[in-house]
């Protein structure tokens, strides 16, 4: 059970949240300009890294706000939490585990 620091409410149990998958995937501004494979890539293809992963989470059973979590997929360490629209923390090298 992860402990996640909602940027609005503070630290809460994982069971209050919903994970929305990979973050920073922008909807293409002009979908018609995309080929079918490009559209499929936007729609279905997601990164599945071993290590740092930026994800969108929603505090469903709390404030209801979406925000970003940088999580390590091996250790489950929550490395950083930042609001929607904020730039992700600078890429750091190396494996934090």
């Amino acid at each position: 059970m992860l402990l996640i620091a909602c940027p609005w409410c503070g630290q809460r149990d994982e069971s209050e949240f919903t994970c929305g998958g990979e973050a920073h995937i922008q909807r293409p501004p002009d979908p018609d300009a995309l080929s079918d494979p490009e559209w499929a890539d936007y729609l279905f293809m997601r990164a599945n890294p071993k290590g740092r992963h930026r994800e969108r989470w929603c505090h469903t059973h709390g404030c209801g706000r979406w925000f970003n979590v940088e999580r390590h997929t091996v250790t489950h360490d929550v490395l950083s939490v930042y609001r929607m629209g904020e730039a992700p923390p600078d890429d750091r090298d190396g494996d934090p585990s």
Binding site: T18, R56, C58, T60, W66, M84
Partner: peptide
């Protein structure tokens, strides 16, 4: 409601 909120908050703030 959750679906609409998600679009509003994450794509069209």
């Amino acid at each position: 409601l959750a679906w609409l909120e998600e679009w509003l908050q994450t794509e069209w703030p």
